Simulated scan of single mutants.
Amino acid sequence: MFLKIHRELGGGQVVAVCDSELLGKTLTEGDIEITVTRDFYGDTPASEEEVRHALTHAGNANIIGTQVVEIAISLGCIKRSSCLMIGSVPHAQFIQ
C-alpha cells in the first residue's frame, strides 16, 4: 500500500491510501474515472500497521483498493455498503 498525508492550512489533514498495484492506473465505471496518482496517493510504501494508525487518527480519508478498504472496514471507519465500486475496485471517502 502507498500512504500520503496531506496537511491542510487549518491544521487538518487528509489521509490518502491506495493498494500498491493500483498506483498509476486509471479506473473507469460508467461516467466515473479515477486515476490513482503519485501526487495524491504518494509513493511511500506503508505497512498495514502504518495504514491502520493513519486511518484511526484520520479526520478525513480517501482510500482505494481491496486491501485498504478491508482495513478501514475492520477499524469501523466505513461500512462495506458505503463503498463505490469502480469495476471490481472499492473506493471510499470518510470524514470523522
Rank of each mutant, 00 (worst) to 15 (best):
E50R: 10
I71S: 07
G10V: 13
Q13C: 11
A92S: 15
T56D: 06
I71D: 04
G87M: 02
G42E: 09
G65Q: 03
T44K: 15
G42H: 05
I71A: 06
Q67L: 07
L23Q: 09
I71Y: 05
L9S: 08
G11W: 11
V36Q: 06
A61S: 11
Y41H: 12
F94T: 05
L23G: 07
N60R: 15
P90K: 03
A46I: 05
I64D: 04
G24K: 02
I5A: 05
Y41F: 15
E29P: 04
Y41R: 03
K79E: 15
Q13S: 14
I32Q: 02
H91V: 07
V89S: 04
G12D: 14
C18R: 02
G42I: 12
P90W: 06
I64Q: 04
T56N: 14
G65S: 05
S81R: 14
G87F: 11
V14L: 15
G11H: 10
G12W: 07
I73V: 14
Q67M: 08
G24M: 09
E50P: 11
R80Y: 06
I34F: 05
T28C: 03
D31L: 11
I63Y: 07
A72W: 01
E49F: 11
L9T: 04
G59K: 10
H91Y: 14
L27D: 08
I63G: 02
F40T: 08
C18H: 06
L84E: 05
G10H: 12
A92W: 04
R52D: 04
G11V: 08
E29N: 14
E8H: 12
E33I: 06
T28Y: 09
E8V: 12
I63S: 04
A46K: 02
V17A: 13
Q67R: 15
I34C: 04
